[in-house]
Design a protein around this nucleic acid. Sequence first.
DNA 1: ATTTTCAAT
Length: 209
Amino acid sequence: MSKLDSVLLTQRKFIYHYKNVRWARGRNETYLCFVVKRRNSPDSLSFDFGHLRNRSGCHVELLFLSYLGVLCPGFLGSGVDGVRVAYAITWFCSWSPCSNCAHRLSRFMSQMPNLRLRIFVSRLYFCDQEDSQEREGLRCLQRAGVQVTVMTYKDFFYCWQTFVARNQRAFKAWDGLHQNSTRLSRKLHRILQPSECEDLRDGFALLGL
DNA sequence: ATTTTCAAT
Ligand SMILES: [Zn+2]
């Protein structure tokens, strides 16, 4: 298997795909920038990083899973004792996962306590409907112990420093970065809240109302 | 912006 696209993203491509604007028309692609760190390692500075783009018929999250064996050697067990090597995975995705990927990831991560996954997303994918499958998928990830967070300025900045061929050019925020990030963070927070309605209903039931 | 959404919801 060839090494992943470990080349850096161009500035234009990064901005185009990670811009957290609402009128993100015609991208038709999703990018995933990742950092993989081996935990409990004496060499705590060692990490692997790179980026992936979805391929036809394969969402980028599942593509990432297919590369896990390369990125996280020994995560299924290594050495004579078969101890599973522990990794911390952080990825920054231009879209939040669809419900299918979210459920597959949740199931996978539940079975892999030696892996920790943190997901940062620029935009929320199909989360407008109150009862959307994508919203449920995000809650499922949370229940599986996966941290899901909307990217803020510092995350875009970190990605620029880490994954972009920046040629000394400093990261420059686009119009509305902060406002959009705040709006999406609030939205995600509401999605991940345990349903207030149900809590209220439970409360009323307890009170016999 | 009434904005869009991984060969796609
Ligand atoms: Zn997906």
